[in-house]
Each structure stands twice: as C-alpha cells, then as structure tokens.
Amino acid sequence: MWSPTRSLEGLVLVATVAPAELVRITGSFRTGPDHARNRERTATVGVPLAYLVVTGLAVAVVASGHLIPDRLGAWRTGPLWLLIALGAGVVLVGAEFALGAVPKLLRGERSLRLSVRGGAPAGPGYLASILLTAVAEELLYRGLWIGALEEWLGLPAWAAICCAAVGYALGHLFFGGLIMVQKALSGAVFGVLLVASGSLLVPVLSHLGQNLTVHALAARQAVDR
C-alpha cells in the first residue's frame, strides 16, 4: 500500500530530534533534598546515555533496513583535515562566546566577562561524559541526519546541513534560546566540515576539540574561583 522504507526513514528522523530530553524522565521521579545532588549525576550519566541509546537504536534500525547512509560509514581523511578539525573546534568556542556577547552588547553593556555557563563540573566523569556525548551527537546529527536527508529525501548538501544544524540546536532547547543559536552555528560548521572533507572523523574531532577547550576553560574558571 505505502512504502515501508520511506516510513522507516521518516520514523528514524522524527524519533531522533531531541534524545537529551529523555533525561527529564529520570528527574521527574526524584523528589526531596537529594534532588539537587542527583541532578548533576543525571546530567553526567543521563545525557550521554540518552544519546548513545537513541543513536544506537537509530543505527540498528537503519542497518536492519539496509538504509545506512554513506556519510555514516565514511571515516578516512588526511592529516591536514585533522588539523583543520581541531582548529575549527577551538575557533568555534570563540565564535560561541562572540554570539553569546551580542545580546549584552545590544543592551549597551560595555564590560563583558567571559565564563563557562553554570560553573560546569570539571571532574574526569564530566570530561568522559562530554566526550561521549560529542561522539554520539556527531554520529546522529552529522552522520545519520545529513546522510539521510541527502540520500533518502534528496536534499542538496546545504539544505541537509541546515536541517541537521536546526535538529542539533533543538536538542539543546532546555539550555535556553541563546544556546540554541550558538549550537545552530556550531552544528552548521560541523556539517560543512563533514561535507567538505567527506569524512565523519573531521566533525567528530572538531566537536571533541571544542568540548575539550570548554572543559579546560571550566577547570581554569573553577581554580580562579
């Protein structure tokens, strides 16, 4: 009657828009004084777990339907692209700070202090968590989404990059509107890196570089305080 393949492709895209929101379910069960203490653990364990579970399921579903996009399987690249990836990751931290400063500048604030949001914890567990999350996000939003939008829906590369960047930004909704804009920018740059290099390793490394830079800034911020 209808194409099961098309429906499966649609299901994969719809079901992977915002995996991180799943952590709120565990938060809903918690009450009382332990709530605040548990929140950090939920964030450290829950967010990467949610991304890994949803990404793993999505990849398993497309593999079972023989629908794996080429982008998801393309990992080879040269040393120049690895350098560009790491450099882009560091530059993106600055770009996100610059975007974050725009509303304050528009309000007329003259003295701006840069800081990592919310005093993020700087322990090894948190570091592992942000690195795992970065890899899962790249597999999902760049490898799967851009590949799927190009191959399944026939979108041009620029449109696929934009859609994946919006999906990636939506995944950060609970951090606020400004962070969504910052993440849309990062998502678009990661997408351009994927399409330009032809390798998923490049946006993965870039994202890891970005997260490592932010983690280093957070650790330094914690020492300064």
Binding site: R24, E40, I130
Partner: peptide, 8 residues
C-alpha cells in the same frame, strides 16, 4: 530541573 550543560 534542567541538567547542567553537557554538550558543547
């Protein structure tokens, strides 16, 4: 009760 920022 949003968790802290993790994904950067």
């Amino acid at each position: 009760s949003a968790p802290r920022r993790l994904s950067l």
